[in-house]
């Protein structure tokens, strides 16, 4: 999750924006509490989406209160109190941050590598304490390993690679849910979210990857004509969002009604807006 799952802030009502930020602050605190102070730097806004979906699927009513924190000492801000959904999302964010760092260590050299090596224990060490996430970690690692094999072999099926990342997210959204219906909905949301993120990221990187001659599934697939296929690619990504929309329509937000609009804003406006921006950049 890398900056592709964010709301169109201008279209949020003020109190929705406040709730959105409250969940982010709550996640940050939860990270500090369950993982460690330094890990709070690894958080990004994408995990708010995960936390909100998990709240709805777990039937949690968020407890949002004004409070102060060390990062913003001057003013009281609305912060969501730690609950099962926040705790889980925070831990997962630390887990993915750790895998990302490990991946970067393998890919980088010199001073950059050194800083990554230094940062690696921040998330790794505390994650060991949380045995309940071990199984999820194994599954995610397996998919990511498979993904990197595909990438190394220059896989020319975009769908096959994206599906692996979809599987990662599918595990993450549904892990630990008990009710069978919720699991199915969560898997579907996760799958489309993961596929969308992967496709958007690959689309975003086309020019960069051509320049540095690094792997990009679209370039592998379309070769030199990749720029002409932009419309096709965009259609595919938007269809992914249709699938996400269909799954989201089944989520029951009755315990956290405020989240419904925010989640819909993220998917209907934020994500498609992001795609439009990437597309425009390519068209230039």
């Amino acid at each position: 999750m890398f900056g592709y799952i964010q709301p169109d802030k201008a279209q949020l009502r003020l109190w929705e924006y406040e709730q959105y930020r409250a969940v982010y602050c709550g996640l940050c605190r939860s990270l500090g509490k369950h993982i460690g102070t330094l890990s709070r730097m690894t958080l990004n806004y994408d995990y708010v989406f995960l936390a909100m979906i998990r709240s709805a699927l777990l039937g949690i009513t968020p407890d949002i209160k004004p409070s102060r924190c060390a990062v913003h000492p001057t003013k009281k801000r609305a912060v969501a109190e730690d609950d099962k959904a926040l705790e889980y999302s925070a831990k997962v964010s630390a887990m993915l941050a750790y895998y990302k760092i490990r991946d970067d260590i393998a890919d980088s050299r010199g001073l950059k590598k050194l800083t990554k090596v230094a940062a690696e224990p921040i998330c790794r060490v505390p994650l060991k304490r949380h045995a309940e996430l071990k199984e999820l970690g194994e599954r995610v690692k397996e998919y990511l390993r498979e993904l990197s094999v595909h990438e190394k072999n220059n896989c020319d099926s975009v769908d096959a690679v994206a599906e692996l990342f979809g599987s990662v997210m599918s595990e993450i959204f549904s892990y630990g849910l008990e009710d069978e219906t919720s699991v199915r909905i969560a898997r579907e949301i996760g799958r489309h979210t993961g596929r969308y993120v992967y496709l958007a990221d690959a689309l975003d990187d086309i020019e960069k990857d051509i320049k540095h001659n690094t792997y990009n599934p679209f370039v592998c697939m379309y070769k030199d004509s990749v720029r002409e296929k932009k419309d096709e690619i965009k259609t595919a990504v938007l269809l992914e969002l249709k699938g996400l929309e269909a799954a989201l329509a089944l989520v029951d937000f009755s315990t956290c009604p405020g989240y419904k609009n925010i989640v819909e804003n993220i998917t209907y406006l934020g994500m498609s807006d992001k795609i439009d921006k990437i597309y425009e950049k390519l068209t230039k």
């Binding site: 009502r13 109190w15 406040e18 709730q19 949002i64 209160k65 801000r77 609305a78 009604p257």
Partner: peptide, 13 residues
């Protein structure tokens, strides 16, 4: 549906 926001400022504040 416009209401239902949590007010974050109490009279005490």
């Amino acid at each position: 549906g416009y209401r239902g926001a949590q007010s974050s400022i109490s009279p005490c504040d």
